[in-house]
Design a protein around this nucleic acid. Structure first.
Lengths: 360, 360
DNA sequence: ACGGACTTCTGAATCGATCTAGTAATGAGT
DNA sequence: ACTCATTACTAGATCGATTCAGAAGTCCGT
């Protein structure tokens, strides 16, 4: 049994294919009476509308925006901040009639190949490392493309925040409270699963721009306050989740001279640090202050509630969608200004313990 | 500047379009030397491979599987069980070269329209209510289709579990411990945002098959044990998350005759119930037993660790992917057997308090 | 020197729609 | 009665690839 196409219906009804096409796509081009007859007969014949592929070819649009996410889906979606971004993105694009085509941005050759073969109208890169073949593949398609967070690419709009300033404000918050002994818990710097102290070489070679900028912000703030960067231990966590954060927290808190203030580059890591502190019987905030990043919903209900750098994530997702739409309409997409960040001071931070403060 | 196509390259090199096509898709059809020349020139001209749409039209495949999720993305992805399903699904399909095209399955007319217009090779319905226009739209495309969990549809393979048996075993577990006063916390029965006691009418009209089956299982078990179903309060939660679960938990625990055993139809709801118990100073498990459903990762580390009905979610996602692949290869997809379920007894359940047990 | 078997490449049909330009018919205005 | 619009529909080119049937050339064995 051959497939039902516009032609099938046209022949059946004795009208031209164009007319049938118009019945679906341009109701004003034919009489209501005929249109109704066509639609009815189409339904009877089991025709569910013009073939999306053929229409896509002719029109030059498919109604899908490709999204490249890091690693596995569970990884991407176990990060609450990412979920919120994607939710904002999806809602905005959905309104404009686009679906989200999810692909792994692993950078593996076969995956990059897949990306080249994907029928989409535009691409959104959702927080990937630099020098990623998957990203190259998406770029090569010469379609509109926007980046969420990272990587920073020439001539590509990035929807990001002022990571450096945000991180600096987190550090300044602790410094102003009197902390001199700081520690950092960072999200991965390279996609290689490394866990542990990140030396300066590793820091320089970072392939995640966001982590890079945040570290730079902290470095700037500490240096300005007279705290040498070399004395700030940076522990890299292999994944961005609470368990891994707890691991990193242990590592920081069991150092010979443990920090009195910890800056985590994400809330899950910060929550992990809180857990580590609890497990090690280090009271927060009296003996240890913890600052997070992103202000995910859970941040408000930790014990104690987490001080964190807030950013409008849903909004940023939406903005990314809006920029994609502009680009698709061939409107210039002035690179949007970085979104504002704001430190939300809750109860996980306070002055350092007197003893340590005096020892300085 | 016109677009670069196979023809552009063919003309440039003085070969036929077919040969250029073969250079990309069938390396054995031409000499290595010519192939290399074509590929090189193509790269120079900024050609990133055959147009996916055109290829899709001709081949009848696009390399994308549509996924219909309930409500918003954040809703779908705030459900850890769903994320795990999708992860398994994505990993399986990814191997076969497919991306996931996410669409909302809201059932709104405009959305259903979008679905009809989507270029995909197959559909996966990820846990939607019955009588959903979006599902109809996907079905109408006459493409391979599988359902994850719900809705149950004639002639459509469902990747599900034996919800009734699982729920029954949860109820039996409590009954065997001696509980006679049970309460149920259910996920939505209808997609209308209702929160509160679900009467029998609402139960009958449920549009979520999974919740329906689980309730039926509990009913069977309680009835068999001589506990009248009409005496088991069923509180419906408007959303499947911890906060909403806590709300429902409050409602159950502040009844005139509060239950000593609560069966939650999902782990987030169960965790919410634990929180409500804590807030109300009801000790678990000495005064209250709580059973969850799904065994999400968080279930093992609640206080106390949650007794829950475990099911292989990642595996089920993969299985769904495998079934899609079979269907795409026109192989018959014998409806796969329902996956095994298993009650994992942890510390959130125990015998009912003596006083209440005696009172019965 | 001839038939067969390869290898390498080409021509043309085809996938299923959209869309521009144009035809035929009807009605309105002068 | 003649022009000019408007409405309702159609013919045919087009989007950019894939693929099958064959053409042209090369190599081999007899």
């Amino acid at each position: 049994m051959p497939r039902v196409t516009l032609q099938t219906i046209a022949d059946d009804l004795g009208v031209s294919r164009s007319t049938v096409s118009n019945a679906f796509g341009r109701p004003d081009q034919l009489s209501d009476e005929l249109r109704l007859r066509i639609l009815t007969r189409a339904r009877e014949l089991g025709f569910s509308g013009p073939d999306p592929m053929a229409r896509g070819l002719r029109r030059g649009k498919v109604g899908a925006v490709g999204v490249l996410v890091d690693q596995g889906l569970s990884y991407a979606f176990s990060d609450p901040a990412m979920v919120t971004y994607l939710d904002g993105l999806a809602s905005e694009l959905h309104l404009a009639g686009f679906g989200l085509l999810l692909h792994y941005g692993t950078g593996v050759r076969a995956d990059a190949e897949l990306i080249s073969r994907s029928a989409v109208d535009a691409w959104v890169i959702a927080s990937l490392p630099r020098n990623n073949p998957s990203v190259e593949a998406a770029l090569a398609q010469n379609r509109p493309l926007v980046v969420l967070d990272q990587p920073v690419l020439p001539d590509v709009p990035v929807i990001g925040m002022d990571d450096e300033a945000g991180a600096a404000s987190a550090a300044e918050h602790l410094l102003e409270l009197g902390h001199r002994r700081l520690g950092v818990l960072t999200t991965p710097l390279q996609p290689d699963g490394y866990q542990g102290i990140a030396d300066s070489k590793r820091e320089e070679r970072a392939r995640y721009d966001v982590a890079s900028s945040r570290l730079a912000g902290i470095r700037r703030a500490t240096t300005a306050a007279g705290v040498a960067w070399s004395e700030v231990p940076v522990v890299e966590c292999a994944a961005n989740d609470v368990d891994t954060g707890a691991l990193g927290g242990w590592e920081l808190l069991t150092l010979d001279a443990p920090p009195t203030g910890v800056i985590a580059l994400s809330d899950p890591l910060a929550i992990g640090a809180l857990r580590a502190a609890e497990e090690l019987d280090v009271p927060v905030p009296s003996s240890l202050s913890v600052v997070g990043f992103d202000d995910i919903p859970a941040a408000a209900s930790t014990t104690p509630p987490l001080t964190t750098v807030s950013q409008p994530r849903y909004l940023r997702g939406q903005l990314a969608g809006a920029v994609v739409r502009r680009l698709l309409n061939a409107q210039p997409a002035e690179a949007p200004a970085a979104m504002p960040v704001e430190l939300v001071a809750r109860a996980s931070t306070g002055p350092p313990p007197a003893a340590v403060a005096k020892a300085e």
